[in-house]
Write a protein that binds this DNA or RNA. Sequence first.
DNA 1: CCATTTCACTTTGATTGGCAAAGTAAATTC
DNA 2: GAATTTACTTTGCCAATCAAAGTGAAATGG
Lengths: 102, 102
Amino acid sequence: MNTEPFLNLDRLIHEKGRLAMMSLLAASTEVSFTELRDTLSMTDGNLTTHIRTLQEAGYVAVTKSFQNNRPLTTCTLTPKGRAAFSAYIDLLEQIVRQSKTP
Amino acid sequence: MNTEPFLNLDRLIHEKGRLAMMSLLAASTEVSFTELRDTLSMTDGNLTTHIRTLQEAGYVAVTKSFQNNRPLTTCTLTPKGRAAFSAYIDLLEQIVRQSKTP
DNA sequence: CCATTTCACTTTGATTGGCAAAGTAAATTC
DNA sequence: GAATTTACTTTGCCAATCAAAGTGAAATGG
């Protein structure tokens, strides 16, 4: 068995919540705080910290604005984040393929 | 996007180290402590706790014996562990497929 | 032989990380 | 104008990871 893919899994992405976030962001162009929270049924606090983690990694860009006199936080994947996610998915693919071929 | 696969990922398996362990165990019939440690380049302490975690979950069976007058700990997947791993891999497959089809 | 080292683990703090309860500020409702 | 709702952020707790140190038995070296 090849252990490389496991060792190379990006810790920042390899977490249920953040993996789901990255997948959502990769699928759509931009997603709001409330959309993320409701779609992934996360608590507000939990989501805030995950967003910050990904932001500090340079994986997502966060835009804060106002809409209908209410704060609106939207997230998008940065090119760096998209690349990291793509690489991560490739590793997952290897892991799946590996375990499916005995 | 379907968020179900993410939410259902088994926490006990979804950790780099333990995922690698489970994959190794799924591939071979039984693996020794030292093999696991060396193959996955883990520290001893780290490996012990991961083994215990999986054992307490009923995912791996641990056998302690002696060989050449030295302790020998070998791990195997239980049927429960095999089922859990299989389910986990199926979810990974869904996640990969999902992200590959825009 | 006795001391030291090696081997195969286990136990132990220490740091990190995830998570939700509580907090904040502005707008809305009653 | 008091209470509630919305959209977050901050704080604190608890669990989990990780490696350094510890253990006990065997092998090695002087």
